[in-house]
C-alpha cells in the first residue's frame, strides 16, 4: 500500500501510467456522453409534470455532482500535499480546479434556465442555490490564490489550505435541501434507495453521470501529464524521453 502510494507520487511513474489510462478514459467519456445525450434528449419520456424541460436534468445533475466531487478532490489533494509533500497531488489539484469551477457555473446556469419554466424564476436566494454560488467563489479563490505569490510553493500551500477549509461548504450544499426550506427538490439519486423515476428516465442520467466522471478522469490525467512536463522539463528522465521519441 505505502509502496504504491509513493510510486504514484513519482511524476515519472505517473506520467507513464497516465499515458496508458487517459485514452481509455477519453473513449469511455465520449461513448457514455454520446449515448446518454441521445437517450436523454430524444428517447427518455417527457415528465408528466414538467414536460420536456426536465431533460435539463441530464446535464444539470452530472455537472453538479462533478462540481462537488472535484472540490472534495481538491481538499484531499491539498491534504496529501501538505502532509506528505507529494508534488503530484498539487499538480493534479491545480489542473482539475478550472474544470470544477466550470462545472459549478454549468450547474448554476442549467439550473437557472430550468428554474424559469419550472419555478417561474431564474434565480432565488435559497440555500441550495446560494451555497452553490459560494462554491463557485471558493473555486475562483483557490485558483487565484495559487497565482498570488511570487514563490509557486507558497501559492500551492495557500491553495491547499483554502481547499481544505472551503470543503466545509460541500456538506452544507448536500444538506441544504433538508436543513432549510428551499425551492430545490431533494436528491434524485441516493446510494441506498431506488430512484423515484422510471428506469427509462434514470438510466440515461446514470450514463451521463458516469460519462462526466470519465471526462473528469481523462481531463485530469491529460492535463497533469502536461503539468509534469511544464514543471519537470529540466529533469533527466524527461530529456531522455524526448530524445528517444522527439
Amino acid at each position: 500500500m505505502w509502496a504504491f502510494f509513493h510510486k504514484l507520487g513519482s511524476p515519472r511513474w505517473f506520467y507513464g501510467i497516465a499515458a496508458r489510462l487517459s485514452p481509455w478514459c477519453w473513449a469511455l467519456a465520449l461513448a457514455l456522453i454520446l449515448v446518454g445525450s441521445v437517450w436523454g434528449l430524444a428517447f427518455a419520456p417527457a415528465d408528466y409534470q414538467q414536460g420536456n424541460s426536465f431533460r435539463i436534468i441530464y446535464v444539470h445533475v452530472p455537472a453538479a455532482f462533478l462540481a462537488q466531487s472535484i472540490f472534495l478532490a481538491l481538499a484531499a489533494s491539498g491534504f496529501v500535499f501538505m502532509v506528505w509533500k507529494i508534488k503530484i497531488a498539487d499538480m493534479a489539484a491545480a489542473m482539475m480546479a478550472p474544470l470544477g469551477a466550470a462545472m459549478t457555473a454549468i450547474a448554476l446556469l442549467s439550473g437557472s434556465v430550468w428554474g424559469k419554466p419550472t419555478w417561474g424564476t431564474w434565480w432565488q436566494w435559497d440555500a441550495r442555490l446560494t451555497s452553490m454560488l459560494i462554491l463557485l467563489f471558493l473555486y475562483l479563490g483557490v485558483m487565484l490564490i495559487r497565482r498570488a505569490f511570487a514563490r509557486p510553493q507558497s501559492g500551492a500551500k495557500a491553495a491547499s489550505v483554502l481547499a481544505m477549509v472551503g470543503v466545509i461548504n460541500i456538506p452544507i450544499i448536500k444538506y441544504s435541501v433538508e436543513w432549510w426550506n428551499t425551492l430545490h427538490q431533494p436528491a434524485s439519486f441516493t446510494i441506498t434507495e431506488r430512484p423515484a423515476m422510471p428506469v427509462e428516465m434514470w438510466m440515461p442520467l446514470l450514463i451521463m453521470v458516469l460519462g462526466f466522471y470519465a471526462f473528469f478522469a481523462a481531463f485530469t490525467l491529460t492535463r497533469t501529464r502536461t503539468e509534469i512536463l511544464r514543471r519537470e522539463g529540466h529533469k533527466r528522465w524527461v530529456k531522455e524521453l524526448f530524445e528517444e521519441r522527439p
Binding site: 431533460r55 446556469l109 442549467s110
Partner: peptide, 20 residues
C-alpha cells in the same frame, strides 16, 4: 421545439456540450 421548452433545454445542453 420540445413543446415550448426548446429554448431552455437547448441553452442548458448547448452550454454544457459546448464547454466539454
Amino acid at each position: 421545439s420540445m413543446g415550448s421548452h426548446g429554448p431552455y433545454v437547448w441553452t442548458a445542453w448547448g452550454a454544457t456540450l459546448g464547454f466539454l
